[in-house]
Write a protein that binds this DNA or RNA. Structure first.
Lengths: 192, 192
DNA sequence: TACACCATGTAAGTGGTTACATGATTGA
DNA sequence: TCAATCATGTAACCACTTACATGGTGTA
């Protein structure tokens, strides 16, 4: 159900069509949720049927049609309900920790190489999220600007800070993983 | 494919049947991978067909049959190959961060309640993982003891430390999330 | 006119969840 | 004899991945 709520959350900022949403969810700088267009288009139709969003057809040129979806009152309600409730945490399933759990079975140098790749990946993510966080704090992202239009100016700072804080969380987790992997490199080196 | 490698990793310690593996993967103190028995039994048959494991039937009493699986040479090879290779990171998909991203849409008190639940969950996980980590360092877990039997005593310390380090990683990530959530509580309070 | 981009779809397959289903053994 | 535990399965469903598929529009 998370994809639907992610879509509702984005559509709350402004109406969009499937293509725009796809660019958002397939974006290279990884956001908080990702999905391919093959999942997004059916989800949108399903959500329209459920009355959570409303599609309006537009024509570009003479034939190119697009469905622009806006969130409905019911959709807003559903989103707020979901946001306010506790949801069971997903069961532990971390492929990288699983891999690391059996590093004693392979050559330490190979294990170290895998850890180094992980560190590089985490640092890449940190850089992207840092940039996004800065942009949010400066209220300089497309979506946030749209979103703030329908909110009282007195709340703008608060909203930007709350959004930015989520990316601070992603950064903190990635930082913890990178630090942990570096400590792992020391452990592997010790015993050579 | 991760479930299969998780199963191989456990079976490397000692042969087990589906029921034992199920207890392991459905265990309350969450390990690094979880799976229900409905996934484990078919996976085991598939892996046997692929020659990664070997089943031997045992009879308890007069009728109760169980298949005890051991890892094969081919299984060991497959596991070592997987352990030595880089694997593409899973796309970002964190339901909790997604929820937090829209906390500006709901009552701050409700958002705070959700954050508090999250903190409690993370602390629960930390406690369980800390206990498991201590047990590993003391070489006092069932599986580790079995595993060490086939390894030279000079390596025992190193192996225990490497295993324990994985749980240190889980702890570090959970700690980062808990700290982040606490910071979120401060942010929510500020603007009341 | 060709290429990049806009725009939307389908389908097969895999991994995971939840529920249903059955029966044996052990020990209190 | 009853309950807890041992032991193994199936089936429906949902989320996600990967690949295939089609055609329109704007601009260099």
């Amino acid at each position: 159900m998370s994809l639907q709520h992610a879509l509702l959350g984005v559509l709350e900022a402004r109406p969009m069509n499937g293509y725009e949403l796809t660019r958002f969810f397939e974006a290279a700088p990884r956001w908080v949720w990702s999905a391919p267009h093959s999942q997004i288009y059916p989800a949108l139709r399903q959500m329209e049927q459920a009355g959570l969003i409303e599609g309006r057809q537009e024509i570009r040129g003479t034939k190119l049609r697009r469905m622009v979806y806006s969130i409905t009152e019911r959709g807003l309600g559903e989103l707020r309900t979901w946001l306010s409730a506790d949801h069971a945490a997903a069961p532990a399933r971390d492929a990288f920790f699983l891999q690391a759990l059996f590093f004693d079975m392979i050559d330490p140098d190979q294990a170290a190489a895998v850890l180094k790749t992980h560190i590089a990946e985490q640092e890449q993510l940190i850089a992207e999220w840092r940039a996004h966080r800065e942009a949010l704090l400066a209220k300089d992202t497309d979506l946030l600007k749209e979103r703030l239009k329908s909110r009282p100016p007195a709340e703008h700072d608060r909203i930007a800070k709350l959004k930015a804080h989520v990316f601070a969380g992603q950064i903190a987790v990635a930082q913890a993983r990178a630090d942990w992997a570096r400590e792992g490199l020391r452990l592997l080196a010790e015993s050579t």
